[in-house]
Amino acid sequence: MRRADRLFLIIHALRGRRSAQPARRIAETLGVSLRTVYRDIADLQLSGVPIEGEAGVGYVLRKGADIPPLMFNADELEALVVGTRFVRAFGGERLGRGARAALLKINAVLPPDLRERGRRTRIFAPELPNRIEATGLIDRLHGAIQARTVLLLDYRDQHEAVTRREVEPLCLAFWGGSWTLGAWCRLRADFRSFRPDRIATLAETGQSFEDDRTRGLEAYLRSVGAEPDER
């Protein structure tokens, strides 16, 4: 568990409690040692979080000083809920799991009225098994982008002709109905945008590539008319 997540969960464990929470119980909940809990609470106290108590007694958030770590108005919350729904439907399996986890954390610290407002939003993004996002291909492309792994594609053009392309994957873009993979194509020695639904086969070459200034992400974005700071 990341330290940032652990600190967040410690604050959540103390939130709204009238009696002191023993450090041992917090440690058991988080699956960490007592020493780790003591150190994390000391760090939170030093950073200004109003936690009172001591080892062997327990800890509470000072009454009247329970400040929420997240502050959203109703429109911001609805945007987050709708956004996570779209990520779950179109972002691939890995990001979909992340979106679910993020929404659970947000809901954990919201007051009931805002939590209910988020549940009532009527904008949906159904997750369907027949879309490309359900095949795992978007996850594979995303993973290759992050790892800077050269890919070998058998790619169909609009006339169904297949060419073999060795590409350096740079980014994915979702256009509302379709995806494109932005990449440096070694065959054409230029930037190309590939549609994942036209990839007949995909394989990792085992090679990696560097983020070159002349053919990396920022250069690709400029080539398609998007400045890097517009991401």
Rank of each mutant, 00 (worst) to 15 (best):
A102S: 14
L170Y: 01
H142T: 14
G48N: 09
F86R: 15
D229G: 00
C185I: 03
R198H: 05
D190T: 10
L61H: 00
A189I: 06
H142S: 15
F209D: 08
V167Y: 06
L187V: 12
T149F: 00
A42S: 07
D197T: 13
T121M: 05
A65H: 05
P69H: 04
F8W: 03
G48C: 08
G118V: 12
R140L: 15
I67D: 08
R148C: 12
Y220S: 03
A173Q: 12
R2T: 03
R186Y: 09
V167G: 10
I11Q: 02
L9M: 05
I41V: 15
Y38G: 08
A42G: 04
H12V: 12
G216I: 11
I106W: 03
I138P: 02
L7E: 03
L141G: 00
I145L: 01
W184A: 04
A4Y: 01
E93W: 07
R192C: 06
I51C: 09
P50E: 13
R120A: 12
M71G: 01
D190G: 13
K63W: 06
R186A: 11
W175Y: 13
G96M: 10
E166R: 13
G182Q: 07
E160F: 04
W184D: 07
L151V: 02
N130R: 09
V81T: 10
R188D: 14
A134I: 05
A203F: 06
A226R: 08
T84Y: 04
T149P: 00
R88W: 10
G216T: 01
R62S: 13
F8D: 02
D75T: 14
E160T: 10
L44G: 05
T180P: 00
R85W: 06
L95W: 07
A55V: 12
P228N: 10
F124V: 13
E78A: 14
D190P: 02
R94Q: 12
D211S: 14
Y38A: 01
R117Q: 14
T180H: 09
N130Q: 14
V49R: 02
E210Q: 11
A42D: 13
A226L: 15
H12F: 06
F86Y: 15
L181N: 03
Q21Y: 06
C171F: 00
